[in-house]
Structure formats: C-alpha cells, structure tokens
Design a protein around this nucleic acid. Sequence first.
DNA 1: AGTACGCCCTGGCCGC
DNA 2: TGCGGCCAGGGCGTAC
Length: 272
Amino acid sequence: MPELPEVEVIRRDLVPHVEGRRIRSAKIAESRLTRRRGSPREVEAALVGRRVRALRRRGKFFVFDLGRDSLIVRLGMTGQLLWWESGDGFCPDQHTHAQLTFAGGRILSYRDIRKFGEMFILPTASVEQTLRLGVEPLDPAFTPEALRRICRGSTRIKSLLLDQTKIAGIGNIYADEALFRAGIRPTRRAASLRWEEIRSLHRSIRAVLQAGIRHRGSSIANYRDPCGQPGRFVALHRVYHRQGKPCLSCGTPVRRIVLGQRGTHFCPTCQR
DNA sequence: AGTACGCCCTGGCCGC
DNA sequence: TGCGGCCAGGGCGTAC
C-alpha cells in the first residue's frame, strides 16, 4: 500500500533514469487505468515523443512533467512502477497494464494486481487545482500552526489524517504509526486536541514519514521499489498489523478496531 | 458536516 | 485437494 514514503522512494529511484529522457512508445492495456480522464489511446498519444522534464510527487501521486501536459500516476493499493530492460529478469505478466519504452530501450512498467490505481493526463498548469490536495506534510508550510488550523470540527483525528484534501500523502499505516508516537488515540475528536498534543502529532507525522523514506517504505503485501525490492520499514512498525502483540512501550496488547472502514491499531494504555 | 456503506478488484486465507 | 466465502483497503459516489 504505497503512501507518501513509498511514492517518494520510487520517485527518487526513477529520477536519474527518466528525467531528461524521451518516451519512445507507450502501451496501456487496461482501460480501467485511465477511467478518471481520457482513454488509453488518448493517453498513449499524449505520451509518445514527449520528454520527461521532471518527475515530481504530490501526496501519493506521481507527476511526470512533460512540458505542456503532465502524466499523473497513482498506485492505489497494489500498483508498482518497475524499471527494467530486456534481459534483466523481469517479465511482464497479466497484471502489467502499461508500458512506457524510453529512448535507449529501457522500460517503465505499471503493474497493479487489484487495479485500484490510475494513470491520466492533465495540463501541467491545472495539476494543482485538479488534484485538490492538502498541504505536503514534509513541506516547510506544514507547521504546528497549520495542523492546528486543520484540526477543526468533530471529525476523528485519524479520519482527518487520511483526508487527502487536508494533508496529502498519509495513508492507513503512517496514520496509525504517527498517532501511536504522539500518544493520541485515533478516536479522539480533532478539535479536542490540546496545543501540546498538536505539536507532538506534527512532530510524529514528520518523523514517521521521514523514517519510512529512510527505510525505503513499508512492504505489507505488494509494495516493491522500481527494482522489485521490498521496503524495510514494516519491521519498525509499532502498532500497525501488531494487534494482540505487546505494545513496545508498555506491554499492553495492541488493539485493533475499525474506524471509517479502516483497520485501526493503537495501544489503549499509551494512547489517550 | 460527519459518518456509514457499497463499489471497484484480486490473492490469500479460512473452514468444511 | 478443492471450493465457496470472506477479507484487506484508497478513493469515490451516494445516503442519511
């Protein structure tokens, strides 16, 4: 399940390969991929012959800047971007739904078992307004004050962390991990957080995302980097998928509840 | 405005 | 061994 850290790791791995390189051919074999906007043929046509000027990230989205247009890719639950060339072992299978061949012959494949991901073209100038994403949590603009402004209303703090229009890039894993590190129960109403708790949560969000990047992401099931390698951060999870196991701080069994249709993990002793 | 629920989709797992 | 049924869950649409 790629969240901000996984997308950032993939982006950094791909930048030296794709930036400045021209797309020689494009094949999109699964029409579901382009469901948000355009058709596979239209997306292919917008890609062929274009040069990747920059590869950026916005929340959980990749933004391939092609000049006037940008290619937007979101991995959903099981999407993978794989960088390879013929002869190095990778073999496209029935889950490989798109393939971009770059000048020089190397290939960027999009593989996605559950097809929750998507791929579409936007005019570069309208990317920001179309994606409608909140603040980047690793950007200097994300201050404790900014978090406090977001923490309004009666929504539960975990649901708020998952709301991409408020903060971009946090998913289920990093939300649970950030709340544990901040000692805040996921069911707390956002507006009830005290200033000290907001500052602590702000620190925790940034720390957990940076740790995720440092350890090359969390591989629960399907996450792989562009070379097919899993991330290591899962070994450092303190609550996520640890239900029933002792809390690493106090020994209380980690509890799992469902909140906003999401599995939610927390320590009932450490998180108040 | 917040929350619940169904939908998309498939592999993995459980029970029989 | 095999098969039906359920579950995971990001984001979106719909309903209350």
